[in-house]
Write a protein that binds this DNA or RNA. Structure first.
Lengths: 186, 186
DNA sequence: TACCGCATGTAAACGGTTACATGATTAC
DNA sequence: GTAATCATGTAACCGTTTACATGCGGTA
């Protein structure tokens, strides 16, 4: 929440709408947890409110991060994601990449790449132990996991490369285009 | 839990170990929720216990599904995943693909493909609305989402194809090989 | 006037994790 | 004898969802 407000002051309703638009990537909290969270942040002095009256719509409360809030956010972002760190954690941090320092972002990507490798190893072990004549359906989840791991690794590698060459402006769009063109990748 | 026990009778500890090996795909419950769950299933008559004493290891309780349990599982599996259905739901069902009827599995895959399309559309809308000169880092999450959507769609299409041609035995392994060979995709 | 989308909020219920407690068996 | 792994279990805590409650503003 702090991260989103740092990108742009918003109301609780806005946060919800924004997170809903990323529905697939991150799960958006219900109002029942979102509003109390904002209340807490306010009481802790990490955000301030600004009640905005509009003639066309009902009034809303726009929240902005304070200096303390920005410091708290930075503290959270700068401490590397915990070693176990799930996909959810990674994606959350990716959503806040705009607030992340370049080196921190690269470290996150590399950490994720390493985690995928170890997960891949686990899945491969599981696949071989299940091996031989086992019904295809039983292996589907493993195959899915391996395919996704491969795809994610490829994306991370592309992204790391494009981040290390900031002179050009290939950006994610160009990377996507490369993918579509099917230029032989690793 | 019922689905795993249907594949093979196991102890709570085994379930945990198995789910841990799929760590990345599904999150394994803590013992604090797993054991009470088994207790409940037992009380509901959906599973039975068998205390097994071994000389080399401590005793353990092997759970097996009863007829009622199998019926309950089937009921759960046959009702298509709810329309919203998250990635988690999809993967969970994929892990249990062995217990799923062929037509149900295909329906699940197709439903997921459709969901990805709509999510893709959302992400693309978000990407264009954020468009123009926006800092690359701000778009990273969107790009990630789109890349993963693409990869998942590709995997689903391959899998659907291989499932519809059961005469050959290409299986997931062959599909993976195709991917690696980089034969022109969709 | 009735309804729908916007916007905020609260309280109960629920489910899961964390932390704790116990004990058998093997290996150092 | 002591640590580590295997194995099971309980209770407090905590965050989230669900359901409910309220009200403004536009529109059919």
């Amino acid at each position: 929440v702090l991260g989103l407000l740092a990108q742009e002051p918003m109301s609780g309703y806005d946060i919800r709408r924004y997170l809903r638009s990323l529905n697939w990537l991150v799960d958006s909290p219900s109002f029942g947890s979102l509003y109390p969270t904002l209340r807490t942040l306010l009481e802790e002095g990490l955000v301030t409110v600004d009640i905005v009256l509009r003639r066309d719509k009902p009034a809303c409360k726009i929240y902005s991060v304070t200096r303390d809030g920005a410091a708290a956010l930075e503290e959270w972002l700068e401490q590397p994601a915990p070693a176990e760190s799930s996909l959810k954690t990674f994606v959350k941090r990716l959503v806040l990449a705009g607030n992340l320092s370049g080196s921190r972002l690269i470290a996150d990507l590399e950490q994720r790449r390493a985690q995928i490798s170890s997960h891949q190893a686990l899945l491969e072990r599981a696949a071989t132990s299940l091996d031989e004549g086992a019904d295809r359906k039983r292996r589907l989840a493993l195959d899915y996991g391996l395919a996704m791991a491969e795809a994610e690794t490829a994306w991370i590698d592309e992204t790391l490369q494009s981040l290390s060459q900031p002179r050009e402006n290939p950006g994610p769009a160009a990377a996507a285009a490369n993918r579509k063109a099917g230029s032989g990748g690793t």
